[in-house]
Design a protein around this nucleic acid. Structure first.
Lengths: 348, 348
DNA sequence: CTGAAAGCGCTTACAG
DNA sequence: CTGAAAGCGCTTACAG
């Protein structure tokens, strides 16, 4: 009636070898003879034996676990919609599993130094940080992590003086691509709706790309066409209303996020302004919703699979003590209806 | 230059007590004097000490970790869209944290018995299963889990002879509510688009509720109005085409999932049939997209927070050896435009 | 190639 | 209320 899990000692006894040999055989040590190894492995399989991770971890001082910490947007009611994080989680899980790592997920702030606790308590060998929440607070957490010698990878842009390593999307390139696309369609007055403050480094980079594309086309960025907006539909709606109220002339909108773009399109529709005939709109993120709104949203897409791969490779590198460098990958412009590049102009 | 993490021995030495007392103090044992405990805790805090989970887990044979296994739909290209799982993950994480548990997430099938390994290797104290994938395969996994004495909670309906405990949404009640709502709007010929096979128990229950509502209204379920459809937009689109091709008469659709409903609405629009004027449509799931399609989809909503709470409470109960019972909670009908209850009828 | 032994850092019965 | 000691189940240097 012994329904307890077997230990390596049980396997050793049954296989007729020492416990040390069992351990070696199961770890595929080259020290152990092939026949011995296969025999031991068969016995282990038959007894449904699995190495006790607590014991192994205690001995090796490794947990073979990565903690994934998600800092979701705090403001805005649409926070549940961040599908990109879902895709990232999915890919990170798979990528980590391929390297023999489990993924611990945390979406909540507990104590002040909960993020440090993961590695210090040997629950995880390193962290991956997704999302920012409030960047000022975030930055403090990074400093604390660095001070505690925690290994971590940040999903995001490379920022001066920011501690740690990051892997992210080249938001500046994305903003540039989006804006250049709008200009190439003949648009002259491209509005920017979104944040541009340092508090949101990703958004700030998109804005920088926007400015770069304008400058390249010989256009001086016009402050009247730039309206701050947080990542929500409501903010996008409001931003367009502000543009209209101050009588700004614009024939295109580059929105910092898809949600802003969608809110903006609704505001345009409510004011009888047709998209893309009168105003072209481009978003950023390519959330699943983007393909479903009407007109379907042209937007900038980040590659979740490559992103996850980069983050996991980075954190495993840091764990193994390999040199790791921060990197950015270029996002991709996805052309749909809202910019007008594909739409058939329906003449007057 | 000793940058290694401190151990309870270090704390003991500095605090001037034995290592055993440190352990007790940090676990808030009533055995230790208040002043001693506070002193030890202060020293621990000052040294950024955290209990080594591997050591503690090895000793107590507990990992204080729950493994969350997600079996996503395999068929259909829209699998990434299951936002409900995201909400569940979020809530499960928080609910588990409140009880002192971490959550390990796995979305991939590795070896044949990877799901058993979690508990057997002491990586997790119990599992939560979300989604089914293919039910036949799933059922085999459940049997294997039960045979291995693994503790697990299933998100889903209560099914005869199914091993383990479940917590879920009363899909039958949802199907019933949706269908009765359509009938109450004066609709007579309510089509059902979706699966009804045992392979998908949740969908089968929705179908059962549909039949129950019809019967209650004295209507004999009409097989011509029932079209099988997997959970995807494309399948919903196809299903409506089939209905139209065989010349079926229908003035309402209850779709087994929102995606099916959205595909159905698109097919109706493409065939010049107006929703909700000519045909009322109700979905199931209330994915975020549901509120955005046009007309906005009336649908049945499951409460992710209550669901997560029930699952975590269940698995922690099983871990602690408390008696746990399977339960169902009733979902809620969310009325929007697509059923016609709110729409203003436009002229004759 | 294999075994005996030490030790990872805790928790908890046992003794006081 | 506190301490000395055993032991959880591994991995790996050391010896052969």
């Amino acid at each position: 009636m012994k329904s307890e899990n077997p230990t390596s000692r049980d396997i050793a006894q049954i296989a007729g070898v020492s416990q040390a040999t069992v351990s070696r055989a199961l770890r595929n040590s080259p020290l152990v003879r092939k026949e011995t190894r296969e025999h031991v492995q068969k016995v282990a399989r038959d007894l449904h034996y699995f190495v006790n991770r607590n014991a192994a971890g205690l001995r090796t001082q490794e947990s073979k676990t990565i903690a994934l910490l998600l800092f979701d947007e705090i403001d805005g009611t649409d926070k549940k919609m961040n599908l990109f994080f879902w895709a990232m989680l999915d890919n990170i899980t798979r990528s980590a599993a391929r390297r023999g790592y489990d993924v611990l997920v945390s979406l909540q702030q507990l104590t002040a130094d909960w993020h440090i606790e993961y590695q210090a308590s040997h629950r995880a060998d390193g962290l991956i940080l997704l999302g920012y929440g409030d960047y000022t607070e975030y930055r403090e957490k990074l400093n604390a992590l660095a001070a505690a010698h925690t290994r971590f990878m940040i999903w995001g842009p490379i920022i001066n003086d920011q501690p740690g390593h990051s892997f992210g999307c080249d938001n500046e390139s994305g903003g540039y691509q989006a804006t250049r696309h709008l200009l190439s369609l003949g648009r002259k007055n491209v509005a920017y709706l979104g944040r541009k403050v340092l508090r949101s480094p990703e958004h700030a980079a998109r804005y920088t790309g926007y400015v770069a594309a304008l400058r390249e086309a010989g256009i001086t960025p016009n402050v009247t066409l730039q309206v701050p907006a947080d990542n929500s539909e409501a903010m996008g709606y409001q931003a367009v209303r502000q543009l209209l109220q101050k009588g700004a002339l614009f024939d295109a909108i580059f929105a910092g996020t898809d949600l802003i773009a969608i809110g903006a399109m609704r505001a345009l529709a409510d004011n009888g302004i047709s998209v893309p005939q009168s105003v072209s709109v481009v978003g950023f993120d390519d959330m699943p919703l983007a393909a479903y709104v009407s007109p379907a949203l042209t937007t900038v897409q980040q590659n979740a699979q490559a992103g996850a791969e980069g983050l996991v490779e980075g954190i495993v590198g840091l764990i193994k003590g390999r040199p790791v460098e921060s990197k950015l990958m270029a996002p991709k412009l996805i052309i749909r209806q809202s910019c007008g590049a594909l739409a058939t102009r329906c003449g007057p």
